[in-house]
């Protein structure tokens, strides 16, 4: 079973568009492996960008939230805000980097 931070449905939209640009004449079935690999890669890349910038104290804080099974999204919004992480911007930047790498720098 696979595990994603964001999910295949959401990231698949971007990867599908990129694949259509890069491989316009190939059938979707032949590109299924590329699709899955790149969805996974993008999910990992975004996860690393979000959590890789946290310091030890912040990592301990979020781990404590996981320990007490904090499921309230507001609590995590406050956490990221206090940590100075603009999730939207981070994710957009990673999508941009990913797209440029995938398309070989041709992306607009």
């Amino acid at each position: 079973m696979e595990n994603y931070l964001i999910g295949r449905d959401t990231l698949g939209k971007l990867v599908d568009q990129l694949i259509a640009q890069k491989y316009p004449n190939q059938s979707p079935d032949s590109l299924n492996e590329i699709r899955e690999d790149n969805i996974r890669k993008l999910d990992d890349q975004i996860s690393e960008a979000i959590f890789g910038g946290l310091n030890d104290e912040q990592l301990d804080e979020i781990n404590a939230m996981f320990d007490r099974e904090e499921n309230n999204p507001s609590a995590f919004q406050i956490f990221f805000k206090n940590a100075g992480i603009d999730l939207e911007q981070v994710i957009k930047d990673e999508m941009s980097k990913f797209s440029q790498e995938f398309l070989g720098g041709e992306n607009a």
Partner: peptide
Amino acid sequence: IEYVKKRAKKNSGVRDVVIGAATIAL
């Protein structure tokens, strides 16, 4: 970091926040 990344994938609260931001960004 790796531990947090793993645990984050299982926490619905943080996933909701990240997925929401990802939807807007996307």
